[in-house]
Design a binder for these strands. Structure first.
Length: 491
RNA sequence: CGGGGUAUAGCGCAGUCCGGUUAGCGCACCUGCUUUGGGAGCAGGGGGUCGUAAGUUCGAAUCUUACUACCCCGACCA
C-alpha cells in the first residue's frame, strides 16, 4: 500500500498536495506562488492541449500569439475589467539593472524607469482588442476566431499547485462577430466544447450554466461556466466562456461597416481553460494509491513490467514483452516497457499506480511457460490472467472500458452528492455536513447571494441553462424565484 | 495586509530550554555481494558556511538583537 501518501479520508488537502508532488506532476519553485510543472505533469497537459487544439480548429479557430506585457493605459479602458483585475497585477516599472554602489550585488537602475509601466497580462482582452481595431474594418473581416496558448500572471495571496498559482498556463480564445446572435452562439459553442472535452477526455461530468453577476468575468455581459464536483464535495470551475457584448469594442473603438454601409461596433467573446484542469483530474479520480488517469489523457496508457531472475530469463521475457509492445502501439496505444534492473517489480507496481497508468501488464517465467500474461486495471485495482495472444485486443477494449468506468464513477458520485433543498435550515446543514451540489431557489438578488456566501461559504456555481422553469420561493429570503440554481463550496 | 509558527545534508526531523570533544537519525544517493510474482537484505561509503548579519563568551546550532525567507490560519481570488 502507498502508506507514504496521506489518506484522502484523513486530510483531503494534504492528500492532494502529496499526490501532485509524489506523482511527479509539479512542485513549488524558488519563486513564491509559481510552480514547476514536471515532465510527467506536462505530458498530461500536452495531451489535453493537443485534444483541445484539435477541437478549436475543427470549429474554425486559428492560433496566434500576443505579448506578455500590456501598457497600463490599455488596461484602464474598460472600467469593470480594470476593477476586476487591478488587485492582482504584476507591474513592470524598469528595464535595467546595475551593479550596486557597495559592489555586493545588483539593483534596479533608477535611471531606467519606463515612461509607461507595463502590466504582466492577467488575461489579454485589452491588448487583443487594441490590435483587433486595426484588423477589422468590414463585415468581410468577420468573424475573427482566434485562440492563443499562453501563460498569465495573477498575483494570488495564497496558492496551491495547479489550483491557484501566481503564473499559470492556459488558452484564451478571443472572437469578434458582426451580430449579437453570432457572438452568443460562439459563447455557447465553446462552453459545449469544454463540456465535451471534460466528459469525453477527462472523464469528469460537468454542470453547464451561467454565472451570477457576482461571479462572472470582469467586463462580460454573460459568463457561462462548467463546474465539476471534486471528491471532497467542493466544486471546481473547470472552464469559462464569456459573452462580452460590445464592451471591449466600444472601449477600444473597434467598428466595422456592415452590408448596408452602416458603422457598427463588433460583438465579442472570450473563453479559456487552464492548467487548473490538472487539479480537477487529480481530485476527481485519484485514490489512496495515487493518480487515476483516464486513458484518453494518460501519457502512458499501458506499462509492461517483466518479472525475472537473471539475465537469460530477462532476455526471453523481453522478447515477448517487446512484441506485445509493438502490437499495442500498432493499435495506437502508448506503451512503456520498464525493464530497469535497478528496481524490483513490486516497486514498479506501486510507482505506476501512483502515476495513474490505466493498465499494467506483468510477464514472468510462469507466464512464458503457460502462454499467459497478467493484467492489472488501475481504475478498479483488479487483476486477471489471460492468454497472451488475446492481450492486444483485450487491452484496446479495456482502454474504452476504463475511460467509461472512470466517467461513470464520477457521475455516480456527483449524483449521490447532489441535493434538492427547500429550507434554509436544511441548506445550512447540507452545506456544512455533506458538501456537494445543492439545487435551491434563489430570488436573483446580489444581496441574498452575498448573505448566503457570508453565512455558509457557499456560492452560486451555475444558474443552469434551459428546461428548468420550476417556480418557487428563495431558500433564504422566501421571495419568488423563477428557477433553481446550483450552490456549492468552491475551490 | 492582520494572527501564529518554522528555518540544522536532496527530503523529513532530533539536538536549542540548561553554551563545552569530530553536529546526529530516517529516507534518498554511491560501491559491492545476495535478491527479483506487491515499495528487497547485508556490508561499506559520500554529502553540513546549523537561514543572513552583528553581538555576548575562553568557547555559540544552542544566549541577545536586527534582517530575510518559507509555512499555517483569516480577508481577496480561476
Amino acid at each position: 500500500m502507498a502508506d507514504f501518501l496521506t489518506k484522502k479520508e484523513d486530510n483531503y488537502a494534504q492528500w492532494y498536495n502529496d499526490l501532485v508532488i509524489k506523482a511527479d506532476l509539479a512542485e513549488n519553485s524558488a519563486v513564491r506562488g509559481c510552480m514547476v510543472i514536471k515532465p510527467y505533469g506536462y505530458a498530461i497537459w500536452e495531451k489535453a492541449q493537443a485534444e483541445l487544439d484539435k477541437l478549436f480548429k475543427a470549429t474554425g479557430h486559428v492560433n496566434a500569439y500576443f505579448p506578455l506585457f500590456i501598457p497600463k493605459s490599455f488596461f484602464a479602458k474598460e472600467a469593470d475589467h480594470v476593477e476586476g483585475f487591478a488587485k492582482e497585477c504584476a507591474v513592470v516599472t524598469h528595464y535595467r539593472l546595475k551593479n550596486s554602489e557597495d559592489g555586493k550585488g545588483i539593483e534596479v537602475d533608477p535611471d531606467a524607469k519606463l515612461e509607461e509601466e507595463l502590466i504582466v497580462r492577467p488575461t489579454s482582452e485589452t491588448i487583443i482588442w487594441n490590435t483587433y481595431k486595426n484588423w477589422i474594418q468590414s463585415y468581410r473581416d468577420l468573424p475573427l476566431l482566434i485562440n492563443q496558448w499562453a501563460n498569465v500572471v495573477r498575483w494570488e495571496m495564497r496558492t496551491r499547485l495547479f489550483l491557484r498559482t501566481a503564473e499559470f498556463l492556459w488558452q484564451e480564445g478571443h472572437t469578434a462577430h458582426a451580430t449579437r446572435e453570432e457572438a452568443e452562439e460562439e459563447t455557447k459553442t465553446i462552453i459545449d466544447l469544454y463540456a465535451y472535452f471534460a466528459e469525453k477526455f477527462m472523464g469528469i461530468p460537468v454542470l453547464k450554466g451561467f454565472k451570477s453577476d457576482a461571479e462572472k468575468f470582469a467586463g462580460a455581459i454573460d459568463t457561462y461556466a462548467i463546474e465539476a464536483l471534486m471528491q471532497d464535495g467542493k466544486a471546481l470551475q473547470a472552464g469559462t466562456s464569456h459573452f462580452l457584448g460590445q464592451n471591449f469594442a466600444k472601449a477600444f473603438d473597434v467598428q466595422f461597416t456592415d452590408k448596408s454601409g452602416k458603422l457598427e461596433h463588433v460583438w465579442s467573446t472570450s473563453w479559456g481553460v487552464s492548467t487548473r484542469l490538472m487539479g480537477a483530474l487529480v481530485m476527481a479520480h485519484g485514490d489512496n494509491n495515487g493518480l487515476v488517469l483516464p486513458p484518453n489523457l494518460a501519457p502512458i496508457q499501458v506499462v509492461i513490467v517483466p518479472i525475472y531472475k537473471g539475465n537469460s530469463q530477462l532476455d526471453s521475457i523481453s522478447q515477448t514483452a517487446l512484441k506485445i509492445k509493438s502490437e499495442l502501439e500498432a493499435k495506437g496505444l502508448s506503451v512503456k516497457y520498464d525493464d530497469r534492473d535497478t528496481h524490483k517489480p513490486g516497486f514498479k507496481f506501486a510507482e505506476y499506480e501512483l502515476k495513474g497508468v490505466p493498465l499494467r501488464l506483468a510477464i514472468g517465467p510462469r507466464d512464458i511457460e503457460n502462454g499467459t500474461i497478467e493484467l492489472a486495471r488501475r481504475d478498479t485495482l483488479s487483476k486477471e490472467t489471460i492468454a497472451i495472444d488475446k492481450v492486444t485486443d483485450y487491452a484496446v477494449k479495456l482502454m474504452k472500458e476504463i475511460q467509461e468506468n472512470i466517467y461513470n464513477k464520477s457521475l455516480q458520485f456527483r449524483n449521490d452528492n447532489s441535493y434538492t433543498v427547500d429550507s434554509w435550515e436544511e441548506f445550512k446543514e447540507s452545506i456544512n455536513n455533506r458538501g456537494g451540489f445543492i439545487y435551491a431557489h434563489w430570488d436573483g438578488s446580489a444581496e441574498t447571494e452575498e448573505r448566503i456566501k457570508n453565512e455558509t461559504k457557499a456560492t452560486i456555481r451555475v444558474i443552469p441553462v434551459g428546461n428548468n422553469n420550476e417556480e418557487g420561493k428563495c431558500v433564504y429570503s422566501g421571495k419568488p424565484s423563477k428557477q433553481r440554481v446550483v450552490f456549492a463550496k468552491a475551490y
